[in-house]
């Protein structure tokens, strides 16, 4: 089994961190994985790409991901600029309060969750940026069934100790509960 995920967002939204947390959650379930960013000019606000591979055996691949099983979009304005397209029949998850524009031609199951509202509601805002990654991961565990919400929450608490971990775990729960088909 090899499942590939691409997270697309803007620098500061937590895409790279989300890929790591997802792999950590998978490892807690005895799976294996690998997370890496697209290496380039990462900076706050610029479009960024992060990848996660999840497998039932150690991941040996170190080349790029070209057609992921799932794409997670942290900023819906990036849909049209999407450089990494989801595999046909795969899964597209968008941070959006309503059905996002630009997904009609996508041959994948499309889901949405209003992760920005969740982040703002829980005070997950850094330097004016709602940090939506954990809410999106919560939604992703629900629609992909790849890892359990409890594993994700544990991985979140391993990544952010104390109160910050608790708030992010709550964001994951809210994302899990609020995700809908778009």
């Amino acid at each position: 089994m090899l499942y590939e995920v691409c997270l697309q967002g803007r620098g500061g939204q937590g895409a790279a961190m989300a890929a790591r947390v997802l792999v950590q959650a998978a490892c807690l379930e005895g799976l294996w994985g690998q997370a890496f960013p697209l290496f380039g000019g990462e900076r706050r606000g610029a479009p960024v790409y992060a990848f996660a591979r999840i497998s039932d055996r150690p991941v040996r691949l170190h080349s790029q991901v070209y057609r992921p099983d799932a794409v997670i979009i942290l900023d819906r304005a990036l849909i049209r600029a999407m450089r990494v397209r989801v595999k046909e029949g795969g899964l597209l998850l968008v941070n959006s309060p309503a059905r996002p524009d630009g997904v009609d031609a996508v041959e994948a199951r499309v889901f949405r969750v209003d992760a920005t509202s969740i982040a703002v509601r829980l005070g997950l805002v850094i330097a004016g940026w709602p940090v939506v990654n954990t809410a999106m991961l919560g939604a992703f565990t629900r629609v992909s069934g790849l890892v359990k919400l409890s594993s994700l929450k544990e991985a979140i608490r391993m990544t952010w100790r104390g109160e910050l971990g608790e708030v992010n775990a709550r964001a994951a729960e809210d994302g899990y509960r609020e995700v809908v088909e778009a």
């Binding site: 792999v23 490892c27 690998q34 997370a35 890496f36 960013p37 290496f39």
Partner: peptide, 12 residues
């Protein structure tokens, strides 16, 4: 170790 390919890859 390979720059980025290993240095920035997260693995168990």
């Amino acid at each position: 170790l390979d720059g980025f390919i290993l240095s920035h890859a997260y693995e168990p």
